[in-house]
Design a protein around this nucleic acid. Structure first.
Length: 172
DNA sequence: GTTGAGCGTT
């Protein structure tokens, strides 16, 4: 149950030649449902226990942030290329391909931010595991880059007038 | 040219 979309290395290898059978459960279901009119079967549990329900397994959890993390980008892919790929799926508030400050080239991943979650989900379901510039890209919800800047409540002076000396330096 | 894990600059 530890299926995560972060396994890009193995997935892009498999995506090279995957028949992608989506209606495999229909064949098995027909075999079970064709012989169930003569009382309960002590040897076989009800089909609902095996397959659960008509719920598809490809159900993905909804997003919680309009910001998406796009990985698997080609080194030749830039901001404009990424923007052009995610543009028709919604209003992009910000598109950024992370480039190394030293070498000045793309790191192979970027971020896209939509105006709403609806657009982000659409873009994710439409652009996840798709080809972009010859490489299979992966769209995942991005983390919050904004970590607490200064959550220090008692950084000023207290009413008691005492000031804690935080100089816990080395005694040597 | 630089081939592949990962979460960014202001």
């Amino acid at each position: 149950m530890a299926l995560s979309s972060s396994s890009s290395t193995l997935l892009r290898r498999l995506l090279g030649s995957t028949p992608l059978s989506s209606s495999r459960s229909s064949v098995l279901r027909a075999a079970f449902c064709s012989s169930s009119s003569s009382g309960p079967s002590p040897t076989l549990p009800p089909p609902s226990t095996i397959f659960g329900d008509d719920t598809e397994v490809a159900n993905v959890p909804p997003l919680t942030t309009p910001k998406l993390f796009v990985s698997g980008l080609s080194r030749l892919t830039t901001d404009e290329k990424l923007k052009s790929a995610f543009a028709p799926f919604g209003q992009l508030l910000e598109v950024k391909v992370i480039t190394d400050r030293v070498s000045g080239r793309s790191k192979g991943f970027g971020f896209v931010r939509y105006a709403s979650l609806q657009e982000a989900e659409t873009a994710r379901q439409e652009m996840n595991a798709k080809f972009l510039d010859g490489w299979v890209i992966f769209v995942d919800p991005a983390k919050q880059r904004e970590q607490k800047p200064a959550p220090q409540p008692d950084t000023a002076s207290s009413h008691t007038g005492f000031t804690i000396n935080k100089t816990v330096g080395w005694c040597g």
